[in-house]
Every structure is written in C-alpha cells, then in structure tokens.
Amino acid sequence: MSKENFLEVRGLKKYFDAGRPALFSRESRFVHAVDDVSFNLRRSEVIALVGESGCGKSTLSLLLMGLEEPTEGTISFEGRDITHLNDKERKGLRRKIQMIFQDPYESLNPTQTIEEIINEPLLVHGIAPDKSERDERVKKAMEDAGLKPAEVYLYRFPHELSGGQRQRVVIAAALVLEPEILLADEPVSMLDVSIRAEIINLLAELRITRQIAVIFITHDLGSVGFFADRVAVMYLGRIVEIGTMLEVLEKPQHPYTKALLSVIPVPNPRLRRERIILQGETPNPIDVPSGCRFHPRCPVAISTCKHSDPPSITLSKTHQASCLLLVK
C-alpha cells in the first residue's frame, strides 16, 4: 500500500443547523464549522493542526473519529471509504483511530482506579478475553505512556495523581488498543509549562516506538515546533496554509499564519518583536465573510479580497496557502 493513502480527507464539510433567524424565515442558518477541508496523513506522520478557538479543530477531529456525520466530503483510511459506516464497522475502526479529548480531567471517571480506566477500552472492544493478557496490555500501555513502574499507579484514583500524570493516564487509555492514528485535541494546553514539554516529548517518542501517526491539535504554534512533520493552519473552518514544519515556521506565506507566529510569547525581553495582534475574534461561522474569509481581520487585505475566495496556491511540493496576494 502506498504511504499516501493511509488517511485521506477530501472536501470535508460539517454544517450545524443553527435554526431559523426568525420565526417566519424560510431558510435556516448554518454554522460552517468545517468548510471544505482536504489533506493526507501518512503512516507515523505527525501533523499539527493549529488555529484560534472556534475555527473548527475539534469538529474536524470528531468527524475523523466518526462521532459527527459529515455534511459533505469523504474520509478514507487505508484505501477504504470510511465516511459512512454502521456501528459495527465503526467500532472495528475505532481501535485503529483513537482520540484524546480536549478536557482530559472530565474524561477520567473519578470513581474508577487507573487500572479500571485503562482496562475499559479492552472490555468494550472485547479484546484480549484472557485476563492475564489484558493485564499485560494495560501495563505496557501505562509504561509506554511513562507511568513507570505501572504497579505504583494501578490502584490509585485520578485525584491522587498530578496533572501531568492524569494526562498520561488519558494517553495510556488511548494506547491500550494499539491504534495507528492518535488524534490529540489540545493535549497540553491545560498543563504547566514544565509538564507540557514532558507530554510533547512522550508523544514524539510514541510515534517512533509505536509508529503511530498523530494529529496534534493546538492553538499554540509554539508548542508544536520540534515534533511535527507538517503544520496545517486553520481559519474559520478551512485550512489556509499547510506545509512542512520548517516551511510554515520559517517561511509562512499566509498573513494569518504570520500573525499567529508573531504572538507566540518569546521568553526573552531582548527578543521582543513586533506582534501582529489581530483585533476582534474569529468571526461567527454562521456568517462567513464574503471573498476571502480572513479579509475583515487581515492587515494586508486589498480590495479584491472582499469579493474573491482565494484558491490554494502551490508554493512547493509540500507547501500550499490560500491568499490572493500569492497569486502571481
């Protein structure tokens, strides 16, 4: 199988019904949460998906998990169309695609021990009916997630662990099914800086030891640096720039990427630099601006940006961005 068609996403859209604006309006309105997204993920590749709050990152990952039904577009995995599956097919696939949800603390049941939490996915999927085999897998997942030695943590409850350790439990519970893709939705945003580095290093190790592909979702471009192969920047439901990590960090082409990069805090006052602080917030995805969806906040927009939606411009074999200013 070619590396290219491991996970392929084409023209993916998710519009949520936002109801009618007024009682007698004919048409209901839609939240354009994900609006025409296409990309490939290769085996054991790490893609960072970056963008402001509300740009559709979590919705995109829920679509990939099959937890939301797409409005349009296709998702295929290992050459097979997985856009619409029945429950049984979906369950089989879930072993291969696992997700770490955005609020890890809420996803840990406080009345279960760590052992029970990590064992649960095996029971749900009826994997390893033999108890000793399950114990073995739980232990391995924990140690791979850095909860070493596993015995120390097995019978503790979530509140008896630190924030970083709890995040490791969440990761272990995802690893125990031995997935091929891990969707990590803001896995470090809530953590202290010192623990953040630890969890990122852990994910970086896993993709080497377990050959796992990772989609790492974050609003902070600064935290993806060394371990992402590629970076996709999302704005209002769409990927506006995608490229290798170095292309995006060192030669960003989209004005939105440039702004996101400029506001990453630099821990040195001597390197204080000009920050491009976009005013306001991401516009409401119910009323997506005309033309280029970024134009109302864009510091370099020209008049044509109001009317024409920029195509994706190829800048190199691996680098694309959607901006009219890049059209030669």
């Binding site: 800086v193 010192s194 953040r196 580095a197 600064g222 060394f226």
Partner: peptide, 29 residues
C-alpha cells in the same frame, strides 16, 4: 531571562519551545 541564577528559573526557561530552533527537543523538569 538572560542571567537567571536559580536552577529552577533556568530549567523553566529550557522547557520553553524556542522558535528560532524549532528542531530542538524540549527539556522538561
């Protein structure tokens, strides 16, 4: 940020992603 003397401050600074060296592994405490 430039001449910290306490090891904790120094370690905290090292845990920071440095965009001028994107390939550098992060150090954790």
């Amino acid at each position: 940020y430039n001449s910290a003397r306490h090891p904790y401050t120094q370690e905290l600074l090292k845990a920071f992603p440095d965009l001028t060296k994107p390939k550098k592994k992060l150090s954790s405490i």
